[in-house]
Structures are given as structure tokens and as C-alpha cells.
Design a binder for these strands. Structure first.
Lengths: 223, 223, 223, 223
DNA sequence: AATGAATGAGAGTTCATTCAT
DNA sequence: AATGAATGAACTCTCATTCAT
């Protein structure tokens, strides 16, 4: 197997037993990579619109103006495509979260940052989030996507730590359950992807502000 | 179509939004109806577990110990089955919501009731909510399910009215968007179906209490 | 899963985790089984003619006058069909070999019997032998067919034992290699399936006689 | 088609049965020819391992470290590659057979020579023989390979002549069928390619000796 | 001499649904 | 009320081959 663009951008655990040289000198792979990214984008849009299962590889190929078989020049499988979409989202999110943690601040500030990060991915990673909301239940059955569950577990730890720290430092109420609270925050944010319209009254930042307000102080008017 | 129970338990399309349970009065059809309900229950469990699309009619038939073709004696399509699951949920929810409204009380009390109603459906209607969370994006493309969008619009009006009334009477903050707030509340509650375990630390009521607390007063500790 | 004819006639190692009742009272399965056997026969003929790989499930379905998808009512997969063909051959061969052994006699008699048994399968199991000759190299890569290699190993032991016994009792020459000799006999017999015509000058029995003659005494005229 | 080495190394179809090696006399095409031969060798190895049908042109290209499309600079089809492998085998075999005949001797000596020739091709032409054993049934359907059947018919005549001559001169038994006997000898020898290991206890020559012994005198111990 | 993108035909398989029995 | 056989359309994916660069 040569170094085509089919490698899916992620390391494979299984070593290649068959021979074959690996090459490619200069920059023609940039073009290949652009084509590939374009196809991923088209697929992402369809996955978001109709769902992963309901989108056929023919749909994607049609959108690109090629035949379905031709997609397999670029990707191993339909799964590879969605994998690429999800990976790119998770990688970016993890990096942003780490950066927020590194910036420091009191738990309320960190939590605000984390919330804002979530909302800020809504537009650039709409498809990934949509797929996660609608098709995760289906995708999780494939070993290949186990890494997503792990990534989510990491994120949970990160949030829960901040909530607990907030409780210890007297910033947050003591009578809420950290894990439960995290889950509700997480779900509430991501699920907005279903109805959120960036061109609407509130953009992603506005949505974040609104949510942070309610999250920290509730909807009640306090005297 | 024969004179069996195949009419999907629902007389007319325009009867959909009126809510309320339907009963079959007379004789042997009760047995048929019981068998039918049993099959719906089996299907519901599978839909909840694997999703609507990923569940095959064969899966359902297998679970019932019959052949897939035999299901069509009871239902005229796979869609009919999920329709029945969803209708039963929406009918019950609408009725409960109306009852809460009828009971009256200040907006905070009514809203609390509405929240509690939502959480209380989590167990008996787990499958319907799961389907709505995971497969709505797919199902909405069929005209047949347009009534669900209408029912949801009705519910939204009901909630938004209460939130606005709360703002007018000085109970709720003025700087929150009623519609946005409703959506977030709605999403936060329903999405819990994905991880909620009735046998866990908190049951549905506990979850409701926890959420109402955070919703009204936020997670911050106010002096 | 119910007890349809899809079980492939062979036990499955993997237990069925999904529920479902198992029934079937009377004899309607005989009919189902007949249909199934008919399809297997059609497939066998095609496999023998064109090879396993080159035969498509559509070819088989066409021959049966149904659509390709309909085959899957009867079989899990194309592999299942060929499996059935091979299993039936191996089962019968193993039984016949055991019977020959049980009959006893000196090694020359037993070996003659074994040879005759091989030739006698040429007509009834032509397809299986043809597949084994032409497609074994392909089929052996699938775990599913590991049992064939095992069956072959058993047969080898059986033959080699007789050859050795013949050498010990002074019936056979001492300067031949038992294993090598077995392999050559085996291959020589089975490979005749490629050109053997039952309607030709010699039938399977005639072929066996001819071969036994040459095998034991060679082609040379001994004074 | 350009003026590359794509003409498959063979000038005309009617030159096929004449046998003999073909050389390219002149200049830089020697390099091209070497590359070509290298590719044929890689393909041969794969065909032997996995069979002709199961080997994809991509497999071959991978092995060579190039892309599958690039193979078509050297060959005009997958068939051309296997054709080259088979032709080279048949040409050499025919030449060797002719030489044996030319050397003369009594039928027993000639037959021994022919047997030894067959065994001696086992190593250098392993792939061709393997393909012939496993994929001939598939390849024979293409007109292009009709010449193989013809070559085989020629060989048969040659062998049968010697066997008959042996019977006439009282060297061989009269009660064996010459044609049948030839076929069994042929099959027995070629089919060993499936399990023969040159590094094993017996090399090709040893195998030949062993077989000649059994062929002429049988496995029985004659007083 | 090779790449990289694509074709086009066809592969095995799935599945909701129908219908005679 | 159920069976068992079949449909027909669609699915993901494969692969020999082509061709502009």
C-alpha cells in the first residue's frame, strides 16, 4: 500500500504486513488533501441534514458530482468519513479546553470559558455535533468509535473538577450534584445545535451569554 | 386492509392533536389489542436501544417469536408502530400539561409542575423520548409525523406564556429570552433520557427537584 | 431469531443473545428443506462449472428463477451455501472411511476400499470435489472453513496408518514414504474430477479398478 | 497503445505454440524489459499465493510500490500478466519435452525423462503451475487462453505415444489405458505443487525418483 | 515511468413489504 | 394469527481499467 490519502489521517493500530514503498516528495499532496477536505465537508453537510445512516454514499458522491465508487479513492469507507468529521471536532475541543484550563482563574471564570468554548464550536463543527446528537447511539456500537467515549470521559472529569472546586471555595451551592450538573450543562449546550440558527436574533456568543446568566443565577429575580 | 386491528388504533388523522386515550369497547378485539400493545412494547424497547432506523422489523418479530411478515397482520408499516409509541406519549403529555394549567398557581408553581411532568414521563415513555431525541431528525421528513411538530409548537406556546407571565409579575428576571429559555429547559430535561437510570442515586422525582433548584436559582451560592 | 431454515444445518458456536421463541411443530419443514436442497444443488452445479468466486449469487438466483435477495431467505450468505455442499461431502466421506476401517482386512484390502470410496464420491459429490480442487486455496482463508483442514488431517492419519501397517507386514515396499504416497494417491484420485465423464468408456468403478492396478503393481510388466 | 513494452512480449498469437524464448535485441528497452519481468515475478508470487481471481491489480501494484494505474504502462491487462507467466512455462516445458524425445532411448527411459522434466519445473515455474491447478477452470473461458488447451493436447499425444510404444515392446502392461494412465501421471505430478516444499525432506529430484519408482513398479512388494 | 482521480459495472447483502396458504 | 417464500429497491463496497498531467 502506498501513501495515498486513504490513510484517514489517524494512525492505524494494525501494522501493514504486505510490502510496498512509501514515498511522495513535494507538495502535490496538498491538492489531494484539499479535494479530500472538500468531500468531507459535503458529507458533513449531508450527515447533519439527514443523519449518518440516512445519508448514502451515493448522496455524497452525487453532491460531489462523481460516482459513488470514486469516493473510495479518497476514503476507506463511509465510517472513515464520519470519523474524520468527529475527530477533527474532538481534537479542537480538547485543545481549547486545555487552553482554558491553562489560562486559570476561579472556577466560575473557568466554567464560563468552557461554556463559551462549547457554544463557539456550534458553527464550525455543526455537522459533528449534529451527528453526535443524532447518530451517536448508532455509531457507538462500532469499536472504531470507542475513542469518542474516552474523550468524553476525559472532558467530564475536567468539568466535574471545576464544579467541585467551585463548591469547595464557596462559589457554588453545595446542594447540587457535580456530575449531574455537568451532564445537564453539556446536553443543554450541544442539543441547541438542532435549532440554533447563527443568522437568528442571537449568535453563538449571545447564546453563551444568555446561558451563563441562567446557569449561574437561575431564572428567578433575586429581590 | 381487512377489518383487523390494523387501523393503528387511531381513528382519524385530525383526531391526533385532541389528546386523550382511545378505547375499544367490545369483544374479542380486546385480546387482539393486548397482543398489539405487547408488540408495540417490544418494538419500543428495541427502538430505544438501537434507534428506529437501526431496528429492523425482523428484530421486532424475532423478539416476539414470530416472523417479520406476521407483524403486518397487526401494523401496516414500521412507521405505524413508532407512530403509536409517539402518539401515546404526546397524548399523555398534553393531557398532563392541560391539567397542570387547570390547577393554576403562580408561574413559578406552574413551571415547576411542567418540569415535574416532563421528568415523570422519563420512565413510562422512555422509548418515545429516546426516539424523539435520536431519530426525530429522520422521522420529521415524513408528512405523517407533521402532527408532532404541531404538538411541540402547542407545548412551546404554553411554556412561553408562563415564562412571560412570570416576568410580568416580577417573579422571573427580565433579561432572559422566554423562547430561548423554554427550549433550553425542554432540551435539558428530555436529553437526560440518554443517561438517566431509574435505579440510580436519583430517581425521576429527585432529578426534577435537582433541576428545579438550579433552574430557578442557578448554581451560584447567593450570599 | 426463529428456527428458520437459515441455520445452515450445522451448529453455531455463538449463542444467540437475543430472545425469541423456537417452535415448529409438524412436517412443513420438510418442504422448506426440499426447496433449500434444490437451491443448493443449483448452486453446486454452478460452482462446479464456473468456480465459487466466479459464480455470483445472482447467477444462482437466476438459475432458480428468483431474485438474488430471495436467496437470503434460505441462506445467510454465499459462504453458507458452499459450506453446506462441502460439509455434506465430508460427512459422507468420513462415515464411509470409518466403515471401511471397521470392515477390517489386510492393508491392501483396506487401501483398496479407501480408493474405491474416493472414486465412488466422484459422481454424487462432483461439485464439492470440484470446488475443493479449484477454490480451496481461496476458501481456506476463511476461519469458517478451518474444519475442512481438520477433516483432511484426520483422513491423512487414517491412510498413512494403513500404508505403514502394510510396510510392517511386508505387503508394501519399504522404500516409499507413507505420507508422500498418501498425498499422491489422494491428489491423483480427486483431480480426476476435472476430466472424468461418468458416461465415458470407464465409469467411476472402472476408474478405481484401473487405478488400484497401477497403484499396487505399477505400469511395468513384471516378467 | 504507445510504443512501449506493452505488447506483452509476444509478437503474434500464432507464434504461441512454437515455443522458444524471445529476446529484445537493442537498447534502452532492456531496462524496460527488466522492470517488466520484475513486475511479472511479483504478480506470479501473488497469483500463486492467493489465486488469480483473488489477486487484485492493486495487490500487485502495492507489492511493486506503485499505484495500480501505473501497471497499465507495462501491461494492457491483468490477463496479459498471467498470460506471460503461463506462456513462459509452456514454452520451456515444450522445449524440454522435445529435447527428451530427441535424446531417444526406450519408452521407460523416455517416460522417466518426461516425469523428471515435469518435477524439475516445480520450483522455477511454481506460480504458473499453481495458477493452472487453481485457476485454469476460470481462465479457460477466455478465448485468449485457448492456446493452452492446444499445448496440453500436444503434450498428451507425446506421452500417450510413449506409453503405447512401451506396451508394444512388452515393457509396459497391456491392461492399462494409455490415455487414462497419462492423465493420472500428469495430475499426480502437477498437483504436488500445492504442498511441495523445496526445502523439505525431498527436493524436486527426490520426489521424481520416488514417483518413478511407484509408477513403474507399484507400492506392492514383489516377492 | 508514474500519479491521482475518476469510471462503470457489478459484487454480496439488507430490508420493508406482499401475499398465497 | 401466522407462515414461508418472494419481491424490488437500495445499500456499501470492489475492482479492472482509463486518462490527463
Amino acid at each position: 500500500m502506498t501513501t495515498t490519502s486513504k490513510d484517514n489521517g489517524r494512525q492505524r493500530a494494525d501494522a501493514r504486513t504486505t510490502g510496498g514503498a512509501r514515498r511522495r516528495a513535494k507538495g502535490s499532496s496538498t491538492l489531494a488533501s484539499e479535494r479530500r477536505e472538500h468531500l468531507v465537508k459535503l458529507a458533513a453537510e449531508l450527515f447533519a441534514q439527514k443523519g449518518y445512516q440516512a445519508t448514502t454514499v451515493r448522496n455524497i458522491a452525487d453532491e460531489a458530482g462523481i460516482l459513488s465508487g470514486s469516493l473510495y479513492h479518497h476514503f476507506d469507507s463511509k465510517e472513515s468519513i464520519v470519523d474524520e468529521i468527529l475527530t477533527s471536532f474532538f481534537d479542537e475541543l480538547a485543545a481549547a479546553n486545555q487552553a482554558a484550563l491553562a489560562r486559570g482563574g476561579d472556577p466560575r471564570e473557568v466554567l464560563s470559558d468552557l461554556v463559551r468554548i462549547c457554544f463557539s464550536t456550534l458553527v464550525p463543527h455543526r455537522a459533528a455535533i449534529m451527528v453526535l446528537q443524532n447518530d451517536w447511539n448508532y455509531l457507538k456500537q462500532f469499536e472504531r468509535f470507542d475513542y469518542l467515549a474516552k474523550a468524553e470521559a476525559d472532558t467530564e472529569r475536567l468539568w466535574v473538577d471545576q464544579i467541585k472546586r467551585g463548591q469547595e471555595t464557596g462559589l457554588f451551592r453545595d446542594d447540587i450534584d457535580p456530575k449531574l450538573t455537568y451532564r445537564m450543562i453539556r446536553d443543554t449546550i450541544w442539543v441547541t445545535v438542532r435549532w440554533f440558527q447563527p443568522e437568528g436574533r442571537l449568535d453563538a456568543d449571545g447564546l453563551a451569554d444568555h446561558y451563563i446568566k441562567v446557569l449561574f443565577d437561575g431564572i428567578s429575580l433575586h429581590r
